[in-house]
Nucleic acid binder design. Structure first.
Length: 652
DNA sequence: ATCCCTCGAGTTCA
DNA sequence: CTCGAGGGAT
């Protein structure tokens, strides 16, 4: 009986480990989650009744007790870090140096993962110790944490003594999943890994769904492994997760080709990499070439320009938005980040500044989210002269006393310069009156010359008003006046958007235009009529009613109409009920080759579809162009249909 | 009251 | 893109 139970447990452990390998390492599940769970539950039962847990049991992966402290581990051999280069010259020099010592060397090319280096030891086929690199000589013991990582084999076929090295990482997909449920979001994948592994509670490690990508053997009894290629084969054969990139090259040019290729696709990878590692393939030759005090001379890391850096926060500017909302912007010492020089980055709001503990004259972490918008992630280092950031009490533009609503500060002065300028800018913007060529700069100039005070004044501008203004030549004047004139013919939804009613933007304006068909009807819309519309609740309904109660707003509308603004009647279009996009919620991401975003939106809307801004489980499909961002990752994570450009066109 | 989803508003640089 | 908050379901 007892023996049978043991046999059954062994069988379950092996079976479950095999399934886990197919799922977590090969990414090719071979059983349903349901079947897996059934076997897993059975194993848990048996382990409880027998009070035994086999050393490679997958139940070890959930993480047990919180550890009292880290134990130090002294590495058998020093773990070197890699020498770096960041251009082709550095790479060529490396290759030349090797070629001067070795005849016809071969090089292996792999990803350099941006995570935490992990050393794992096996004896008799079982994982018995894991450690961080630490300073290369002494690391921290993290055996319990690493055992929770499902792609790390607890048991391998190789029975000799073995020490392997890999990089602890989190896939961007798993990071996104984690952030969906976590109270405290982890913005930085690398820190998410370090935080998860270097945590005394292995349960924390388990929750973050890390992986370890293995790339090296530190020591092994088996003497016939004599090259990096054989190392790679060995790791694969023993079911370790390995990097997707592994190529063998002979020249610097070939290596450079791979680097260029990776540089192009690196932002689309599911894993963060910060470079490429180039190693001499032959292990015996490596030992001949040797080491400097810091680095092996037989390998180099080609580093891509970093996407995250630190910089000094010099000043905080407070902007006034068109709604009167006050927004803090951090002015930083300019740094180059993802191909652009960044000097400003948003700080969101005062609470955010406090939460991140950001101080003036301190070093802060800066990154460009999605490689575009700069943001300040948090405090890196403070100094003696670092000071708290003060919350403003008066409007930086008009000095009106600010009021606090929720976490935000507002300027309520109707005539506030910055607020008015932003209001007019919004009025002229693409989703509103679409006055092409009227930039916020021109609006500022016109405002300060007192030629305009509010949006309707734009339609009173004459040629003589503009003549003589610095930078305004005949051509520019006639272009501008022409654009303004052209904008007078507008669609109802754009007109509603242009009014700038609090909480009413592009989508709500469209909903309102559909329901009320003309301005007079909208003007007398009652609260009850408004809340009937889907997606309009009591807050927005009240904002709309209040807006049309205000004398100054009604006067402004009258001014616009008197200046000749006319709202086109929209004809109703027939929609094809059988079209793919009919009644579908579609998200656009990336750049399509043949359509602008607005054109694609129109095509989908004309077919009865709705373009929404973010991906969720309610989304029907995601249309994906080149350089797609995180929305594509999210779509994949949620298993939502992704259409590439050609599929998109086919379904029109 | 408390979820989740979606919208609006504000964000940078070339 | 990201945040906060509104809206609706529960």
């Amino acid at each position: 009986m007892q023996e049978q139970t043991m046999e059954r447990m062994k069988f379950l452990v092996d079976k479950l480990n095999e399934y886990a390998y197919n799922y977590y390492v090969l990414d090719k599940p071979t059983v349903s989650d349901y079947d897996y769970d059934k076997l897993y539950d059975e194993l848990v039962q048996l382990e409880q009744t027998t009070n035994t847990v086999l050393p490679s049991s997958p139940t070890l992966r959930v993480g047990g007790e919180v550890l009292p402290d880290y134990k130090k581990v002294v590495h058998q051999t020093k773990l070197y870090s890699l020498n770096k280069c960041n251009d082709i010259q550095g790479l060529k020099k490396f290759v030349l140096d090797i070629e001067s010592l070795v005849k016809n060397p071969k090089f292996t090319v792999e990803y350099k993962f941006d995570g935490l280096r992990v050393i794992v030891k096996y004896k008799n086929g079982l994982l018995y110790e894991a450690a961080t690199r630490g300073d290369g000589i002494v690391g921290e013991e993290i055996t319990e944490q690493v055992k929770t990582i499902k792609s790390v084999p607890l048991k391998i076929d190789y029975m000799g003594d073995l020490t392997v090295a890999g990089e602890g990482i989190i896939t961007l997909e798993n990071l996104a999943k984690y952030n969906k449920t976590a109270d405290e979001k982890l913005k930085n994948a690398r820190n998410a890994v370090a935080g998860a592994i270097r945590n005394l509670d292995p349960k924390v490690t388990a929750k973050r769904n890390l992986d370890v990508v293995f790339y090296d053997i530190i020591s092994i009894d088996d003497k016939h492994i004599d090259s990096q290629q054989k190392v790679q084969e060995f790791l694969k054969a023993n079911k370790f997760l390995t990097g997707q990139l592994f190529e063998v090259c002979q020249t610097a040019e070939q290596i450079k080709e791979i680097i260029d290729r990776v540089d192009k696709i690196k932002s689309k990878l599911n894993i963060l990499i910060d470079g490429i590692v180039i190693k001499l393939d032959n292990l015996a030759m490596r030992e001949e070439i040797g080491y400097t005090t810091k680095f092996p001379k037989w390998a180099i890391a080609y580093k891509f320009a970093p996407v995250e850096m630190t910089s000094m926060l010099k000043k905080v500017e407070w902007n006034v938005g068109r709604t009167g909302k006050i927004n803090p912007i951090g002015i930083i010492e300019p740094i180059e980040l993802a191909g652009a020089v960044v000097s400003r980055a948003t700080l969101n709001n005062y609470d955010d500044i406090k939460r991140k503990n950001i101080l003036l004259n301190s070093l802060v972490f800066v990154r460009r989210s999605n490689e575009v918008i700069p943001e300040i992630l948090g405090l890196a280092q403070k100094f003696d002269n670092s000071t708290q950031i003060q919350k403003p009490t008066h409007c930086p533009s008009c000095n009106q006393k600010l009021i606090e609503i929720g976490i935000n500060l507002f300027c309520t002065n109707e005539f506030c310069r910055e607020k008015q300028i932003n209001k007019i800018t919004y009025f002229a913007s693409k989703s509103c009156m679409n006055i092409v060529g009227l930039s916020d700069k021109i609006i500022t100039t016109l405002f300060d010359l007192k030629l305009i005070r509010q949006a309707s004044d734009l339609y009173k501008l004459s040629k003589s008003d503009l003549e003589g203004i610095e930078g305004f030549k005949d051509k520019k004047i006639s272009n501008l006046l022409h654009s303004i004139e052209k904008s007078k013919n507008c669609q109802f939804n754009n007109f509603i958007d242009a009014l700038g009613i609090d909480g009413v933007g592009e989508k709500t304006a469209k909903d309102l235009a559909k329901k009320f068909t003309n301005l007079d009807a909208l003007k007398c819309a009652t609260f009850d009529e408004l809340v009937e519309i889907n997606d309009i609740g009591n807050v927005i309904a009240e904002n709309i009613v209040d807006f049309f109660k205000s004398k100054s707003n009604l006067l402004e509308i009258q001014n616009l109409l008197d200046s000749g603004v006319t709202i086109e009647q929209q004809e109703k279009k027939e929609v094809d009920l059988n079209n793919f996009f009919y009644n579908k919620k579609v998200v656009l991401t990336g750049t399509l080759e043949n359509y602008k975003r607005s054109q694609a939106t129109k095509l989908i809307e004309d077919r009865g579809g709705e373009v929404v801004s973010s991906v969720s489980k309610n989304t029907d499909c995601v249309v994906c162009g080149s350089d797609a961002g995180s929305k594509l990752d999210k779509a994949r994570a949620l298993n939502i249909l992704v259409l590439y450009e050609d599929d998109f066109v086919k379904n029109l």
